[in-house]
Design a protein around this nucleic acid. Structure first.
Lengths: 348, 348
DNA sequence: GTGAAAGCGCTAACAG
DNA sequence: CTGTTAGCGCTTTCAC
């Protein structure tokens, strides 16, 4: 910066003021400084600046993974907002319990960011408390934490609607497939199960633990086994509500492999409405991680600039049921089919 | 840090030495300092540290998007390496030309990172030169730049292999579908087209521009139109090589919508080997963005710590053809089928 | 093995 | 409107 000052024939203060866009610089001096800066390829060191301002110009995000549809969409929509606000994006990815422990022990974000966005974790009270003392606004995304700023969709309601859709179609044996919860790494899964259970109970359908199956994430074999468990039940389900589109896709693929038609024999319903849902003509519950990312970024920027702002605000975004081709009425029971001909004609 | 020093009854120098793990601290003092630091929840300010060391402890990555399979996988595999090296991950996402221009003009990463990983961009010479003067190692990922460290797969070879697979199956009318190149935002696309063309030429099959179609990324309508163009040709293709799995999925979905069986009537081949390729039983060319991310991170760390290291090194990772269920021999020509009965029986 | 002191590059009063 | 000055919190000589 001294170089720029010298070249422009002014003091470093003036260079600093110019580069920060303060209006208290005369136009001609501003022009000289800007040119000098350009010629010297000068860029302000955020490090040095933050040392004195106390602000880092960085937004930190804590994520369980980066290779998921959800995180990709959320971060992609969040990034332009940060850029517009002149902030950088610092990603802390925590993939396992060891990294998690060390993160919460050392809290490396401390003093190195102006706000933290925590995505998708199922945090313990202790962890939440630890974050309270981080010295910066912490926003919870895709999860709600009592008394802290949160942005999420109502997974319970979404899952309840989804299940009701299946019930309305006439299904009574409805399975719920979820990804095995790597401890504390999936907040929504639990909530969606709850919604599923609520819908069944409301409809007077008894809960059956055998209909709830888990599979490790992105594991073809796991899905095959889970589906196998369902198919070998005394009274197998006529519909499967998968907690995520990816899982739904895997379930469909498994069913079709064994010649079980979807939706004629078994209906499958997802959650997310990823791009692939359209390709697969998958019925699903839509949520928008992009909207969540944006809302979270806006909230964070607000909390950074206005320390008076409401620190307990919850932003709840909507979900929508998108009925497509993988859900249909259940086939007629075996007895009736034999008596009345093909199930197709039952409702004609 | 002064607080920690006081609490531990030592000077800040000693605290600094302790926290950085230097061995010139006596065990008992070290213990005292560490406890004081823990009690005070102290975390070193990277900002202040970097001001004097000149190193920021940050790796910057420049990416065109975050919501793609490729970037997700690459960043997910890269993150643990950085974490192990005690570095943070700073993401610059550039989504359009305006952001791109401003990034290269201002180069905000200057002095705010120790190395820069540039992903997937089709850079101009001017941009490359600009990065040369960034004052930190710049590693190009999923693209090669003459004389600069690069990590990539050989898209030309991969695409040639893919095309050859189709030729070997008996196809002669082979289409190439690629995503419309938003100017300068897709390096691989061009290379894959080249490989496709080479394979055809080697096999003595004339190139036909009508067989090369483009569609905006992730645009169902665009795909429908592109496929429509192919189907309405005087001599339509019997195989489509899609430059990405996602595009292949979209093509298959379009074809099936109009009752054109895959692979009986038209074969479809992808590139990437995403998870969805398995669900769709999609034949494809596998590449590993995870390996690329890891290799890039390792290379970057090496270049940071060893300024003598070879700055022109290229790391080329392999691709593999994964034949699955969406590629098959072409149907017998119409004339022959009429003469000889169903195509199925032709080779019996 | 430890402390004192200088200074990294910048911003924020405060004068002028 | 601009310059001078004093740190921000750390690391790094250099003494001891």
């Amino acid at each position: 910066m001294a170089d720029v000052a010298e070249r422009a024939g002014v003091s470093t203060s003036t260079v600093s003021r110019t580069l920060r866009g303060l209006s208290t610089v005369s136009p001609e001096v501003r022009a000289r400084v800007e040119e000098a800066a350009r010629e010297l390829n000068f860029a302000v060191s955020r490090q040095a600046a933050s040392l004195v301002t106390g602000r880092t110009g960085t937004m930190a995000v804590l994520v369980p993974t980066l290779d998921s549809w959800f995180m990709g969409a959320a971060l992609s929509s969040l990034a332009p907002l940060l850029r517009a606000a002149g902030m950088e994006l610092n990603v802390y990815m925590i993939a396992d319990l060891a990294e998690r422990t060390s993160f919460f022990e050392r809290l490396p974000a401390r003093r190195n960011a102006d706000a933290l966005l925590v995505f998708c974790f199922d945090l313990t009270d202790e962890e939440t408390t630890r974050l309270d003392n981080l010295g910066m606004p912490v926003i919870y995304v895709s999860q709600h934490v009592e008394g802290r700023p949160s942005v999420y969709v109502d997974d319970v309601v979404g899952a309840r609607r989804a299940t009701r859709h299946l019930i309305n179609l006439g299904h009574r044996r409805i399975a719920f497939a979820h990804t095995a919860n790597v401890r504390g790494f999936s907040f929504s899964s639990r909530e969606r199960l709850l919604g599923y259970q609520q819908a069944l109970t409301e409809a007077g359908i008894p809960l059956d633990d055998d209909l709830v199956v888990a599979t490790p994430p992105r594991d073809k074999r796991g899905t095959t086994q889970a589906v196998g468990n369902l198919l070998s039940l005394r009274e197998p389900p006529t519909a499967v509500f998968a907690e995520q589109d990816e899982l739904a896709a895997s379930v469909i693929s498994t069913l079709r492999t064994v010649q079980i038609q979807v939706p004629e024999r078994v209906s499958v319903l997802g959650f997310d409405d990823q791009l692939m849902a359209e390709w697969l003509d998958l019925s699903t519950v839509a949520q928008s991680p992009s909207d969540m990312g944006r809302a979270a970024a806006e909230l964070a920027l607000e909390l950074i600039s206005d320390s008076e702002a409401d620190r307990g605000r919850h932003i709840v975004l909507p979900t929508h049921l998108i009925p497509r081709g993988t859900t249909a009425p259940p086939p007629a029971p075996l007895g009736e089919r034999e008596a009345n001909g093909p199930a197709q004609g039952r409702n004609a």
